[in-house]
Nucleic acid binder design. Structure first.
Lengths: 239, 239
DNA sequence: TCCGGCATATTTGTCTGATAACCAGACAAA
DNA sequence: TTTGTCTGGTTATCAGACAAATATGCCGGA
């Protein structure tokens, strides 16, 4: 029996249930190099004794780690650290304040690629969808209404037009991580002081480049739009 | 008590444990629109009766769905579909054959952004690391050895030099999804027929552009490198 | 009628003990 | 050497129970 001298201290936070706390601690221990890929974890019995919880809690924690791709279990043999622990999915980690720029770098890169590919394919029905969303925004702008939904539809249509489903899904994921930001573009303040109009002008540049099939211009216009949108979003936050 | 008439049939595959099968089935049911965000899932008791398994299995399945961000549970209240089910992390779905191009689109976009940012920051120690990896590849090329590790180090150094940790982590994730491809660049065949040398020439272009602080050239060189690497990797596969 | 407090049922969280399925290694037999 | 068997250990599943948090309905008072 191997002893695992460097397991974390048996002090589980009551934050969100014992199983959650134990799963966190084990994941941290693995990520921190406590056990390399393919190595065996302590048995359920050992974990029960060390952390002073029941086997049900241990099994719930292991189940979560399995779902996250950190460990794999084999009946009768034990639980083992996965070959590439935690690399079954991509997570944007902490969201500190200066971190927002970093996320927008990612968004700018992918959004530009989507626009570029859309300009290359230029399927009529895809362009029609982009243009429809653009006109919806235009109408919202002239009537002073909020056009956040049309804005979403505009970018989603470009992603579809790129012909690469991964781009749209990744942008969707990114959008979900800072959901408030696109709505900010269409706040009452932003409409009043012309920021919404500026955003719409950039949308026009993207649309024209895509319609013209100018891939380089589309990429540049999309990059510029995301960069400016980042700056505009930051102007909105007080302090 | 609500009845949920459209739950999947209670026929769990014995493939990888009952809990795994049940988790899959519930996730599918939720994704397929069986229950919208915020809606309540059947109680554990109901699931036990419907699927003919014990409560432990049901709880393991729920634990996995919690880890994946599909559901949230509240003691005494029940289990509820999360606000944005499954959007806590980004997963590259199926990896069909023509899908590889789509993944490389993502990689090209992010790799170009990393090179661009690296050229903008141009920190001396970062550039030194990039150059060191480049020279290691050069040496490997001249001696006919494999330089896959140096290749990895080269791209990782650029990601670090970008100053944006997310870029490196995302590229790492992408690389893990098609792990064989970069090794192909340094296979015996690729070294012999000059493909490795071509790759190295592109590396040189990236390095020079970063050293010169030419952001546009760095982005273009990185994009071209990924595109060519994609083509070279495909030449290697028979058929 | 409306509203706050209270008892009660429901539901998830945790614990305990048991049985079955399975694996790895040791050991004996062919 | 190979094969079969045995044994101890481990995970998977089951069953039942209690604790803790929540939802619900009832009832009295305003």
């Amino acid at each position: 029996m191997y002893h695992h001298p460097d397991l974390p201290h048996p002090h589980l936070p009551r934050s969100q249930g014992l199983g959650d706390g134990l799963a966190r601690q084990l994941a941290e221990w693995i990520s921190g190099g406590g056990a390399g890929p393919g190595e065996r974890l302590p048995t359920e019995k050992q974990l029960v004794e060390r952390f002073g919880v029941s086997r049900a809690v241990v099994r719930e924690a292991i189940a979560r780690l399995k779902a996250d791709g950190f460990v794999e279990t084999r009946q009768g043999a034990g639980a083992f650290v996965a070959a590439r622990p935690g690399q079954g999915s991509f997570k944007l980690g902490s969201m500190a304040d200066d971190d927002l720029n970093h996320v927008f770098d990612l968004r700018a890169a992918v959004e530009a690629k989507a626009a570029e590919l859309a300009a290359r394919r230029r399927l009529p029905e895809d362009i029609a969808a982009i243009r429809a969303a653009y006109q919806a925004m235009q109408q919202a702008l002239q009537s002073g209404q909020a056009g956040a939904e049309a804005d979403d539809a505009f970018h989603a249509a470009i992603a579809v037009a790129s012909g690469n489903p991964h781009l749209g899904r990744f942008l969707d994921y990114l959008a979900g991580q800072f959901s408030a930001s696109r709505a900010l573009t269409w706040s009452a303040d932003a409409i009043a002081d012309g920021r919404a109009a500026a955003s719409q002008a950039e949308h026009a540049a993207i649309l024209l480049a895509i319609e013209a099939g100018d891939t380089a211009a589309a990429a540049i216009a999309a990059t510029r739009h995301v960069e400016n949108a980042t700056r505009r979003a930051k102007e909105n936050t007080p302090c």
